[in-house]
Every structure is written in structure tokens, then in C-alpha cells.
Design a protein around this nucleic acid. Structure first.
Length: 267
DNA sequence: GCGACAG
DNA sequence: ATCTTGTCGC
């Protein structure tokens, strides 16, 4: 069956072979079919999220020099926070090799494998710290094929997962205007984002009072969008939800250390 | 008609 | 994602 959602990717991205794209599209379809769109856990039943103990943030940071090359090394970080205090109870960073470039719509094929490997390692080594829900920086269902990075990570770890993106990724048919975003004044305000067939893919959510731009929230796996919104809000002190913000800081820190190291080596 | 495009 | 300075405010 022909797929009309093929995208034109400008030359600023390293080229990915049509064969690989074709393979990725098939894999994304498989992921999409496996996604559970509703709540599956006890703690998701009440708005107060009673019983939710641990929330993990997942992020990958890149060295400045080769983040745009076909393959590169990067640092993946997972930070597990206690809910609702957001106190860090575990953090783990891993240097990873990313064998394929970033291509719009195909972030999962760059980041999901190393991230799931790290998560599975934590689950094995620290079974008492296994997170109840994952916050992944990137989209879940708010994606051209409804199977963004957060969906992949959720399916591969079998943990409820939420996609949280700082920027809106282009999906044809969605109508999100600046006016809608400007219309949000209070923390917790949101605008649902639907596709051509009027299906809800995610939402623009105002997570902080003074944040001009919203966060884009969508489900990854085993959670409803309504519950996902609650989790993200309760984890957000600033614009970026705390677990992701921490994971971001830590992975960046390691990138910086690595670059300093390679600098002194040259001299 | 061209361009827009998570990280 | 990454590159950067100052600046405003609690």
C-alpha cells in the first residue's frame, strides 16, 4: 500500500537511503499497532495520581562538532525522581554510539535503541527503583505516523510512557496557530492537537506561568492523554518537567567533560 | 510554487 | 540537538 506521508527532507540533514526509510516505515507501523492508548495502572485512576512513586526523565545530548554527521557518539541519561517531590533517587549516564543520523520523523531510529538499553540495564540492576512512568523528550503519538520516539521506548520497556517535546514537529493536517498558543494564559491551560481525521494526537500544554511557549505532550504507551497531562503538570516546576530537565543537565555535563578531555589531549 | 520538520 | 551575552526577576 502506497504511503502518502512521505516527507521532503531538505539537504541540511544527512541523507538516509530510501531502502532504510522504507524499512523504518514498516517498523513504525508495527509499533503503532502495539500502542495502548488508555490507562493500565492503578495509580492512573485518580487525578491525584495516588500510588505513583517514581517518574523517570530520558534525554540524549550530543557533542557540538558531530551532532549533524551521519553517525556519532552521544550521551544518554536517565534520571529517576520520587513523586511528587521530584527528588532525584537515581541517575545514570551512558556513552552511546548512534549509527544513523537524525531525520525529521525518524528520531526513534537514532535514539530509541540506546535509551531502551540503558533503561533495561537500570531495571535489571535496580529492580527496586523501576520507574512507574517515563517522560521522553520527543513526541509520542504526535507524529506523522503516530509512532514517535516515546512510543518506541514505551513498547520496548513496557512502561507507561509520555512524549514531551519543546518544539512542534510538522504533522500534516494539524492546525496549531500562534493565536491558540497565545490564548493560553494560566499554567495548565492546553489546546488539543488533532490530525486530518480529527483524531487527537496530543496537546500544547502550558507548563509554567512565565513560559511563553508550551510543551507538546502526547502519549507514548499505556496511558491516556488526560493522565499524561496530569503527570507532566505535577512534574513541572519550570517549563521543562523536572525529570527531563535533570536528565538534560546531566547528559550535557558529560558531553562537556568529554569535549574538555579531547581538547587537553590535543595540546 | 516553495517551504515548514521532535532531537 | 548545539552555538552564545546580557538581562530581568524572585
Amino acid at each position: 500500500m502506497a504511503d502518502d506521508s512521505e516527507q521532503k527532507i531538505s539537504t541540511r540533514y544527512p541523507p538516509v537511503s530510501p531502502e532504510l526509510i522504507e524499512k523504518w516505515d514498516l517498523l513504525q507501523n508495527e509499533i503503532r499497532k502495539k500502542i495502548i492508548h488508555s490507562n493500565t495502572e492503578e495509580w492512573q485512576l485518580a487525578e491525584e495520581l495516588h500510588g505513583l512513586r517514581r517518574v523517570a526523565g530520558v534525554d540524549v545530548s550530543y557533542p557540538s562538532k558531530d551532532h549533524d554527521s551521519y553517525e556519532c557518539d552521544a550521551f544518554a541519561a536517565v534520571v529517576i525522581c520520587e513523586f511528587p517531590t521530584m527528588k532525584i533517587i537515581h541517575k545514570e549516564v551512558q556513552q552511546v554510539h548512534l549509527p544513523v543520523p537524525y531525520a525529521p520523523g525518524y528520531l526513534a531510529f537514532r535514539e530509541s535503541e540506546p535509551v531502551t538499553t540503558l533503561l533495561n540495564k537500570i531495571m535489571k540492576d535496580h529492580p527496586n527503583k523501576v520507574p512507574d512512568v517515563l517522560l521522553v523528550d520527543g513526541n509520542g503519538m504526535l507524529h506523522p505516523h503516530k509512532s514517535g520516539l516515546a512510543c518506541h521506548v514505551g513498547i520496548h520497556t513496557n512502561i507507561p510512557t509520555i512524549g514531551v517535546a519543546k518544539n512542534l514537529h510538522l504533522v500534516d493536517g494539524i492546525g496549531v496557530t500562534k493565536q491558540m498558543v497565545q490564548g493560553m494564559s494560566a499554567r495548565g491551560d492546553y489546546v488539543l492537537i488533532r490530525d486530518k481525521s480529527n483524531e487527537v494526537l496530543g496537546m500544547a500544554l502550558k507548563t509554567a506561568k512565565d513560559a511563553i511557549n508550551p510543551m507538546y505532550v502526547s502519549i507514548g504507551h499505556k496511558i491516556s492523554l488526560e493522565t499524561a497531562k496530569n503527570v507532566v503538570l505535577k512534574c513541572s516546576k519550570y517549563k521543562i518537567p523536572e525529570p527531563i530537565r535533570f536528565a538534560d543537565n546531566i547528559s550535557r555535563e558529560f558531553v562537556r567533560k568529554m569535549e574538555e578531555k579531547s581538547q587537553s589531549k590535543k595540546t
